[in-house]
């Protein structure tokens, strides 16, 4: 892989494809405003990372709010957390980790130019993502049925009068009301996470379609790699959401 600078930018701008034939075989992917394909890849990767850093800040703000309110209303957060289904949460965590691995393997498949493997791995990633969202929807439905969605129909019944045998201590009414803060953050954070997953699934579907047409296995796959980064980022957000939302005071 010769890392030589092209003779002149003018030549690149005018006829990148023609130049490709006698320089090296990948210039068809080179946009005219970049000197080399390495520079182009570095720039696109850098741009993606800057975007992801703003995303870290977006979720960071919500995590900050969570940490402060949890610190203030800890018993309400512990009681709210007990309402989540730990089995669903754990299974979803494992599903998301698996989809992160299949995504990493997909990028690898593109690098070694195995089109069939790439398409299969992308489809696997999509299926895992859809299963995650299905389980999440099921959990949301349960919250709806139990009137645990913050707002006018919110019920504190289960927190002031915990069912016999649950091992939960009843909360005073004012503290029980604060479980709405927990559930507000729960829905805001998992909802924002789910929105990112839906966008990610759309992008992955596009990738799988393009890959089935032979894209990304010709030696240049920056867009695949960048969307892969986005998918891993979603996994990282869940890595923190899961312990903070599901694993508060499970031992009580």
């Amino acid at each position: 892989m010769a890392e030589h600078a092209l003779p002149s930018t003018i030549a690149v701008a005018d006829a990148p494809a023609a130049h490709a034939d006698h320089a090296h075989g990948h210039d068809p992917y080179l946009r005219h405003h970049f000197e080399t394909i390495e520079q182009q890849h570095e720039a696109s990767s850098f741009g993606m990372w800057l975007f992801l850093l703003t995303e870290f800040m977006l979720f960071g703000g919500m995590f900050m709010a969570y940490m402060v309110y949890r610190n203030w209303y800890y018993p309400a957060f512990a009681a709210g957390s007990q309402q989540l289904n730990l089995t669903f949460g754990t299974v979803n965590t494992l599903i998301l980790i698996t989809s992160s691995v299949t995504m990493a393997l997909a990028v690898h498949a593109a690098r070694v130019r195995k089109q069939g493997t790439l398409v299969r791995l992308l489809i696997t990633t999509i299926v895992l993502g859809v299963v995650f969202l299905g389980i999440k929807a099921n959990e949301y439905k349960e919250k709806y049925d139990k009137h645990h969605i913050p707002g006018a129909n919110f019920s504190i019944e289960e927190f002031t009068h915990p069912p016999a045998g649950s091992g939960e201590k009843p909360l005073p009414v004012d503290l029980a009301e604060k479980t709405q803060v927990y559930f507000s953050l729960y829905f805001a954070m998992t909802g924002m996470h789910a929105l990112h997953m839906i966008i990610g699934l759309g992008l992955l579907t596009f990738l799988a379609f393009r890959a089935s047409q032979g894209a990304y296995t010709q030696g240049y796959f920056s867009s695949l790699e960048n969307i892969g980064l986005y998918w891993h980022f979603i996994d990282i957000v869940w890595t923190f959401l899961f312990p903070l939302l599901y694993l508060v005071n499970r031992h009580s």
Partner: peptide
């Protein structure tokens, strides 16, 4: 076809990913 133009990392990534 020459080497992939993108990246210098080795292509033996799969075992690492599985670990």
């Amino acid at each position: 076809m020459s080497e992939p133009t993108q990246h210098a990392e080795p292509v033996t990534e799969v075992p690492t990913y599985l670990i």
